[in-house]
């Protein structure tokens, strides 16, 4: 292959940018899949939900930083609804996610107004007059990587801190052994709803940041979010299983980057960009087979 060093660097930079942003989403999937043991498909809808809200707010002239708060909140709200459907209406976990995911497709279209909305030339967290003035030109190409890494790091630290609180303990307990939450005189349903809210907040935040980086909202951007999230979580947690020093959240972050690297490699090796979702699926399948993580946890003998 006659690829220049510069081209390789550009690809690597792209991998890191995507990996860090999807890493935030993967942290959300980590909460539902690993901590709650809940296969939450609503993430395929909450990722573009975050995008839609962000794009609309940015067009309306809202501060890009505030749109991040907004996308987290609306994602958390959607997660709460998924949780309520599951807990209060006693709908099976998988179905609750499917219902949310499907409903959100139309809701996202409603919010954005159409299937594609561009925010080029608008102020974002990556491109704004402040950066243009104060950031030296040499840092320019690395700006997206640096900013997305800082946000990812912040979210990871916040999540780590939360998981060490009393409320966080209860969240970990409900995925581990629901019975004990009842024994502690707490409603396990409420705990699940809280977990789904936080998780989807993370996912929608990632969706919002992703659209700020790309400069547009695209309705189908959510397809496969769950797959990417799961792949990242499973790569990360399995690869660093033996490393006790590495926290699971750190492993998930790295899993997201490794996953994006694999996808880039596949494309560099000649796959088309339109094969992306196929690559996503095949990669995920390979990871499942290799890591032997195909079955659901057996809770009664946990």
């Amino acid at each position: 292959m006659d690829m220049t060093l510069e081209a390789i660097l550009t690809i690597l930079l792209g991998v890191l940018e995507e990996g860090f942003i999807y890493g935030i989403m993967a942290l959300g999937v980590y909460i539902t899949y690993k901590i709650l043991d809940f296969p939450d498909l609503s993430v395929d809808g909450t990722f573009p939900l975050g995008s839609a809200v962000t794009v609309v707010l940015i067009i309306a002239g809202v501060n890009p930083l505030l749109t991040m708060v907004a996308s987290f909140c609306i994602g958390a709200f959607a997660g709460m609804i998924a949780g309520l459907i599951h807990v209060k209406l006693k709908v099976r976990d998988l179905f609750a996610g499917i219902i949310m995911m499907t409903a959100l497709y139309s809701i996202n279209l409603r919010i954005a107004g159409k299937a594609n909305v561009a925010i080029f030339s608008k102020e974002t967290i990556f491109e704004n007059t402040l950066f243009e003035k104060y950031v030296p030109a040499i840092v320019g190409p690395f700006l997206v990587v640096i900013i997305s890494f800082l946000i990812l790091l912040l979210m990871k630290v916040l999540l780590d801190m939360y998981l060490q609180t009393k409320s966080g303990y209860l969240l970990r307990a409900v995925g581990d052994n629901e019975t004990i939450v009842t024994s502690l005189a707490k409603d396990k349903g409420t705990v699940k709803i809280i977990g789904l809210s936080i998780a989807n907040g993370f996912v929608a935040l990632a969706g919002g940041i992703h659209s700020q980086k790309n400069g547009f909202f695209e309705i189908s951007s959510g397809t496969g979010t769950m797959t990417i999230g799961l792949a990242s979580v499973i790569i990360g947690t399995n690869l660093f299983k033996k490393a006790n020093k590495i926290k699971a959240t750190t492993a998930v972050m790295m899993g997201a980057v490794i996953y994006k690297l694999c996808v880039s490699l596949a494309i560099a090796l000649g796959m088309e960009a339109s094969d992306l979702k196929l690559i996503t699926s095949v990669l995920f399948l390979s990871i499942l087979v290799i890591s032997n993580d195909r079955r659901r946890r057996n809770k009664t003998n946990a």
């Binding site: 303990y169 970990r172 307990a173 581990d176 004990i180 502690l184 009664t300 946990a302």
Partner: peptide, 21 residues
């Protein structure tokens, strides 16, 4: 297995139980 949380440490389990109520 019903009375404890397997992925949490002994200390965390004790703290969890202590916070009941």
């Amino acid at each position: 297995a019903m009375g404890t949380c397997p992925t949490m440490t002994i200390l965390e389990n004790m703290a969890l139980a202590d916070n009941k109520g």
